[in-house]
Design a protein around this nucleic acid. Structure first.
Lengths: 354, 354
DNA sequence: TTGTAGGCGTTATCAG
DNA sequence: CTGATAACGCCTACAA
């Protein structure tokens, strides 16, 4: 699927340059040249950039003017080499295509970039092996900090991360013992919330669909425990492997029906599964929620576009990124936050599928 | 939406460390220490890492053993500072949440990472101002190359990029005059393909919904030109601004109906718009495609999950990233590809909405 | 095939 | 408040 016969050229709009304002020169400036122009020593320029308050106002203004005029940008490699600190922060995402993770990483980056950090995004693909490799590669990158959209389960990786000696932020769950900093949500509570909602709607015979490891398992456990307390009967639990699309939800729902027995409602550990289940249920002639209620988790983009809309448990994933960024800035500025373990709230979004 | 009352702890699975295999040490090793252990000079270790073929086999094996045992990773800042080349490649995405861009960036990174490059993802948000700022920041980052999921329209930015003196890859369109390398698709052809498909289905009075700048405009122009040739009547063209979700497609479709006049079919410049339009059409009691045909572009995740499935024009976005990575590797290895301007093919996916 | 000398651009340290 | 000096860790150039 590469070279076609003969593609037509696109007549792409070209916006001309405004008069004046020459483009920046080819070879990057060194701090020395800026210093020369401003009539100071290089170190003074350096100070203006890192600790402006320690430089005389007039000197500073003069230097800033030169910096502005020349478009000088310091060489991050030289800076990192000499100072031992890099301005790169690595965010590891278990699935780069996820809306939720994307929102979190986006707000994480938006919080850090104004402070001069570059956020580099890596992907771990829900795989321990990949995680090991990525953490190894951190020894090379030497970032200022790392953030994960998840928590690290493998002991070896936890130890390796701790020994990097840089801030580590875990997210998306609320473990007792984070490696370092944490911005999470209680998946256990999410499961319990699901059970409570289904019980409130009068459903008695319920089922669970979700991954049987990681956060899916945590939601399942919370669901299971709360269901028991509420007198619900968890008829079946369908475990799924890697989730790649709605199709997995359809398959899981089919597997659920194949197991037999009456079911009033199903809690799916994420909205992709729930949407797939809902579509499959409808295509089998079931009316949702009359014949079967479906409850999701995560409030994906599709959740409110199907009929009936998917009732789901949600939280502010952008806030996770933002708070993670703020915790990190606090830590790096030597005024660390009192509580480096934050939780975001869960909320129910009612849309009619329960 | 932050600190809740009292979240329950998640009992996250902890996988214990396998016996043996100590974790890596805290402070990073220097090349000097590796050299010492292997009984050679630092430069020899350096050579093993960069030009292994230039080192005696035995010496090399001995050094590799030490590297393996110690987990040595060279300091990228020192390396970049001295050699003047960084292993960072920056990929700018106009929308970090887009499936298509995500796939492209993912395969771009997958192609480059085995060769020792780190791919850093930035976002330009379809905004010229943002683009200027990001390109400025490149002067600081000094990456080995830059890739964009799009083409650069602003003359000033084109000049600034060219002057960075690094490989630049543009994608997603097929302009006559790329800055440097190009892996694109002809949006003009896509528009023409849409017109031809609608004409084939017997539709005569057609409409267009899409952005009136960038690639949307290119598809519109191709559509418009081919429609004229085919004797179709382009009754209305609805321009939309930034596209944030299905809701924009619904709104545009409503605007289209408000303009009045009979319409047989509508071509939407992307699937998000098309899906929104299709949902809105159905909610107004129209039967697709009997009362109105809808044709999309991009083959989004949702396109095959609605009823009827969305007929759309697609291409292999992962291939764009892969080819971009290959072109770049070729260029950086001093055996540049003969043709640094590649096109990917378009294909129609028939699903029933036309 | 291996090694020696020196510097990439910046900032920590200490002195003025 | 400002400056001189040296070093961060690696790799280019040249020499053996």
């Amino acid at each position: 699927m590469t070279a076609p016969a003969k593609p037509t050229y696109d007549d792409v709009l070209r916006i001309p340059a405004p008069p004046g304002r020459g483009a920046a020169a080819g070879r990057p400036l060194r701090i020395e040249e800026v210093a020369e122009r401003a009539g100071v020593a290089p170190i003074t320029v350096s100070r203006v950039l890192r600790h402006p308050e320690k430089v005389n106002r007039e000197t500073r203004d003069r230097i800033l003017e030169v910096i502005e005029a020349t478009g000088y940008a310091s060489n991050p490699h030289a800076r990192a080499l000499r100072s031992g600190r890099s301005n790169v922060v690595v965010a590891f995402v278990s699935n780069i295509l996820s809306q939720q993770f994307g929102l979190a990483v986006r707000s994480f980056a938006a919080t850090l970039e104004p402070e001069g950090f570059e956020v580099l995004v890596g992907q771990t693909s829900y795989s321990y092996a990949k995680e090991v490799a990525m953490i190894q590669s951190l020894r090379g990158i030497r970032p200022a900090a790392v953030m994960f959209t998840g928590v690290i389960e493998l002991h070896e990786n936890r130890a390796a991360l701790a020994e990097l000696g840089i801030p580590v932020i875990e997210t998306w769950a609320f473990p007792r013992d984070p490696i370092d900093m944490l911005v999470g949500l209680s998946n256990t509570d999410a499961g319990a919330m699901a059970a409570r909602r289904l019980a409130d709607a009068g459903h008695r015979r319920v089922a669970f669909i979700g991954r049987s490891s990681g956060r899916g398992a945590l939601r399942r456990d919370g669901f299971r425990a709360a269901a028991a307390e509420l007198g619900l009967d968890v008829v079946h639990e369908i475990g799924v492997g890697e989730i790649t699309g709605l199709v997995d939800g359809r398959a899981a729902f089919t597997a659920l029906l194949d197991r037999g027995g009456r079911i009033d409602a199903v809690f799916c550990a994420n909205d992709l599964l729930a949407t797939g289940a809902l579509i499959e249920a409808r295509s089998r002639g079931l009316t949702v929620p009359r014949d079967l209620a479906v409850l999701g988790f995560g409030d994906n983009d599709v959740a409110d576009q199907i009929t009936p809309g998917l009732t789901t448990i949600t939280f502010d994933s952008a806030a996770i990124g933002r708070i993670a960024g703020e915790l990190l800035l606090a830590r790096l500025s030597d005024t660390p936050s009192a509580e480096p373990r934050r939780a975001v709230e869960l909320a129910l979004v009612e849309r009619g599928s329960v």
